[in-house]
Computed example of a mutant assay.
Amino acid sequence: MGYNDFGYTIWGRDWVRLAEPIRQTRPEPLLPRARSIARNNGVQATIEGRTVRATIHRGNEASVIYLEVAPLSRAAITAIGEVIPDTAVLTDDMHRALGAANIAIAPVLAGTDCSCKARTLRCVHVLATFYDMARRVDENPVLALEIQGYFQAAQEDSPAPVEAPRWVPLNSFDPANYFDVAPA
């Protein structure tokens, strides 16, 4: 990589790989423009849970981008917790340790959508959003796990008691448990 604007940490490089897959055999002509959009702060993104909603305004056109990241599996969450007990600060060495333990933590997209007229899965706006996410993850590597649902799943496993619901839907009861049915 001749440039180092995006993916200067291993955590951010996972997002750059979404835009620049290693298995790609020919150059992608949209990448320089996508990098330029992201480098010049052209992507306004908000992250909510496992979704990224972004807008890109260029001239008189505006595009809305939606990325949904697949959640980590329960096995991966458990394995990450064993390899990295404290996820407050993530380093490149921790990423390498996860790779050595064969734990895949690169983001996997569950869905992408862009409102532009290109109507492709890899339009310039989606690619620019990948680069913007790489920049954000470079600045805060914890975001790499957060966007995949790692911390939300850890909270669901907390030992805090869960309050029983006050009401139970009637269709959840099995009548055979409550009534004696005599054979006819």
Rank of each mutant, 00 (worst) to 15 (best):
F6P: 01
F179P: 04
F179W: 15
M94K: 14
R13D: 13
E163K: 15
I147F: 08
C116Y: 10
N171D: 15
L31Y: 02
Q44Y: 01
A176R: 11
R17T: 04
I10V: 10
A118S: 06
P107S: 04
D174N: 14
E139H: 10
E146T: 10
R13H: 10
A184P: 07
A75Y: 12
F151N: 08
D180F: 13
H95Y: 12
I147A: 07
A104M: 09
M94L: 12
E156M: 12
N4I: 09
A100S: 14
T46E: 10
E20I: 12
A70T: 14
F179D: 06
A182K: 13
A176N: 12
E61A: 15
I147Q: 03
P159D: 14
D86C: 12
E20H: 03
I103W: 03
D113W: 12
W167K: 11
G111N: 10
L145Y: 03
P32R: 08
R122T: 09
Y131D: 02
P29T: 12
A106I: 02
D138I: 03
R122P: 00
N40A: 13
P169F: 09
Y66C: 07
R17W: 02
Y178F: 15
F130D: 00
T55W: 00
E61G: 06
A118T: 05
A110E: 10
A176L: 10
G2L: 04
E146R: 14
I84Y: 03
P29R: 11
L145P: 07
T120N: 06
V142A: 14
L121Y: 08
V64F: 09
R53T: 05
N41W: 09
E139D: 14
I65F: 02
V89E: 15
L143D: 10
I147L: 14
A34H: 03
N140D: 15
A144E: 00
D113M: 02
